[in-house]
Design a protein around this nucleic acid. Structure first.
Lengths: 144, 144
DNA sequence: CGGTATCCAAGTCGATACTG
DNA sequence: CAGTATCGACTTGGATACCG
């Protein structure tokens, strides 16, 4: 039993899964799985990954330069690096057209789309609680 | 109109919010809000923050050393630093008991609990798609 | 016990220059 | 156009030592 999430629940169903996670102490989750999951989350939670994910989810298919233009502040190095990582992780496809000048298209895979959907909850949380967090910070900083 | 999420929808309702986000091109979201949201996400998506969040959500209230023991691999420096940041962001409370030896308790605030719930979707995604990602990586690495 | 202070090694990231 | 290569500033995080 490597994976603690068995087949009785469809993990797609958030409320069932929340129930499940609440019922299982972290100590009983396979540490190997936990480590991998954390590594995965660490990777996909990366700033540029999230922005590219959101952009492609919105626009469908874009070429290299177009992504660079729309993700403001990203350097060419980070753009290449992030796209490669996402391709390696199976989040997007990279299509090279044998033309001059070269043309490379990027689009999300179903896996990429599902990740985008999963992050939706966090995005909404951040947007909704932005003011709360800023107020908390102001209070914290006001003290010593 | 600073915040694009107006009052017509309750952002707590994921499906409504998904609909909303899908309908609004990123370019029309206030860039100031977007920047803050990204910074927030970057911060809360931090590896240690997530692990501490999950631990406290599970265990309720713990003291400093106990957290350090259960979050494997964390150094004292990162533990202190992460706890301070989370306190500053209003995610947890820090209670100092005036006794010797000193005793400091940490517990999630309602804000911290709501964040934990929001991350549930990502956690489930990672757990569920771990094999897909590993397979994709193996395929990618097998080529040049 | 629950920190703070300091140092240092490794990694991250942007800028710049170059290429098929 | 879509990269690769290289360099240097900055950041991160662990280890260690010390303190109220």
């Amino acid at each position: 039993m490597a994976n603690p999430l068995e087949n009785r629940f469809d993990p797609q169903d958030i409320s069932e899964a929340e129930y499940y996670l609440a019922a299982v102490p972290p100590s009983e989750i396979d540490p190997r799985v936990e480590r991998l999951v954390n590594e995965l989350i660490g990777r996909v939670a990366d700033k540029w990954t999230m922005l590219i994910l959101e952009l492609l989810e919105e626009k469908g298919m874009l070429r290299f330069t177009e992504i660079g233009r729309q993700v403001k502040g990203i350097s060419q190095k980070m753009l290449t690096q992030t796209l490669r990582q996402m391709e390696r992780d199976g989040l997007l496809t990279r299509t090279v057209h044998p033309v001059v000048p070269p043309r490379v298209d990027y689009a999300l895979t179903p896996l990429g789309n599902s990740l985008s959907a999963a992050f939706c909850g966090v995005w909404i949380w951040a947007e909704r609680n932005l003011d709360m967090v800023e107020a908390a910070r102001a209070r914290f900083d006001a003290r010593g």
